[in-house]
Computed example of a mutant assay.
Amino acid sequence: MTEPVTVLGLGAMGYAIASAFTAAGHPTTTWNRSARPAPDGAVRTDDVTAAVTASKTVVVCLTDYEAVRSVLPPLADTLRGRLVVNLTSGSPDAARELAEWAATHDILYTDGAIMTPTDTIGTASALTLHSGHQTEVLSALGGNQPYLGAEPGRAAGFDVALLDLFWTSVAGVAHAFAMARSENIAATELAPLARGISDLLPMVIDEYSARLEEGKHPGDAANLRTAAAGMAHIIETAEARGLDASVMRAAHTLAQRAVDTGHGADGISYLTEMLERNVPENATRGG
């Protein structure tokens, strides 16, 4: 028999996680702060201490780290010697703080980040990052479960960086459609060409990451001076039509700052180094 697992939290993702553990043959006990049904085959209890006692592995998927901190500390003695796998989204610093708390109470701690929607959980499409204590229990969630190392904040670090890329891109899609519609171009007309633009991103990601490793930012194909000029045209057009251009203004401010400090001929990948140089020296940095 596969090992018993307890799942704390039965929101949409917690429910999917509990379902996947049950489907994989793990005896699964669930708890939720409010009354919610458990998946078929799982046991539901209103007693969180009883839920934790039922398994050596406790998977946590709550709203945020504030919720996690309200639930786990009162259970410190019960959790001693057990493994906590925290799949709640949060910052790398929050993950490290929780890992430190766990260590002081002899609790093993894994911090994880689920990078795919609820309907992928338990399928080959799932992706769950984890760091801290390495565990095989996440294999029940399906797909890939890359282990990113013993430093507990690394999974959350990957998570926030990847979500930064996603949400910035999504904001760009929303704004592009608004720009098109202001010119009586239907979103469905723009979409096929927009997909072509998105196809450039894998090349940009690979090229810029290689440049950052080398510490070189050639601007022979595209430089920051040209990029800043292009952004200015977008801002001018958007604002002339009454569209909010604050996201593009923020990007333009970064590019123009690089130009103004003598890096106009550098490639756009230089912006990463410029952003890093503006981090205060006394700021806490992970890893």
Rank of each mutant, 00 (worst) to 15 (best):
114 I>N: 12
242 G>W: 05
165 L>V: 11
142 G>V: 11
273 E>G: 10
283 A>Q: 11
164 D>G: 12
83 L>Y: 11
131 S>N: 10
26 H>L: 00
7 V>L: 13
208 Y>C: 05
170 V>D: 02
265 A>N: 07
42 A>S: 00
62 L>K: 11
209 S>V: 11
257 R>M: 06
278 N>I: 05
91 S>W: 15
89 S>T: 13
126 A>F: 15
57 T>K: 12
233 H>Y: 04
130 H>V: 08
64 D>A: 10
278 N>H: 10
237 T>N: 12
193 L>I: 04
95 A>T: 09
104 T>H: 11
212 L>E: 14
169 S>E: 01
228 A>M: 00
163 L>N: 14
33 R>I: 06
53 T>N: 04
222 A>K: 02
163 L>Y: 15
137 V>K: 03
207 E>H: 15
112 G>V: 06
211 R>M: 10
121 I>W: 15
93 D>V: 05
168 T>D: 01
86 N>D: 12
95 A>P: 10
39 P>V: 03
214 E>S: 08
170 V>F: 13
254 L>C: 03
151 E>W: 05
73 P>A: 11
41 G>Y: 07
209 S>Y: 09
132 G>N: 13
111 D>G: 09
228 A>F: 00
60 V>K: 13
196 G>I: 00
202 P>L: 12
146 P>G: 14
86 N>I: 05
233 H>D: 01
70 S>F: 12
109 Y>Q: 03
53 T>Y: 07
222 A>S: 03
40 D>M: 02
264 G>W: 08
279 V>C: 13
134 Q>W: 04
121 I>M: 14
237 T>I: 09
109 Y>D: 04
153 G>P: 05
229 A>H: 01
60 V>A: 14
278 N>V: 06
91 S>Y: 15
78 T>D: 02
246 S>P: 00
174 A>P: 02
140 A>E: 04
8 L>C: 09
202 P>K: 13
254 L>Q: 07
106 D>W: 05
286 G>W: 10
81 G>R: 08
210 A>M: 08
194 A>S: 06
145 Q>S: 09
39 P>T: 01
15 Y>F: 15
151 E>G: 04
230 G>T: 00
70 S>R: 11
84 V>I: 11
28 T>Q: 02
47 D>E: 04
20 A>P: 03
85 V>R: 08
43 V>K: 01
138 L>A: 05
248 M>H: 00
87 L>P: 08
96 R>T: 12
108 L>V: 07
206 D>C: 14
33 R>Q: 10
208 Y>T: 07
139 S>I: 01
59 V>L: 13
82 R>T: 03
225 R>V: 02
214 E>I: 01
138 L>H: 03
242 G>V: 01
210 A>K: 08
71 V>N: 15
245 A>V: 01
14 G>T: 10
141 L>H: 14
1 M>W: 04
176 A>Y: 02
98 L>E: 04
279 V>R: 10
225 R>E: 08
147 Y>R: 08
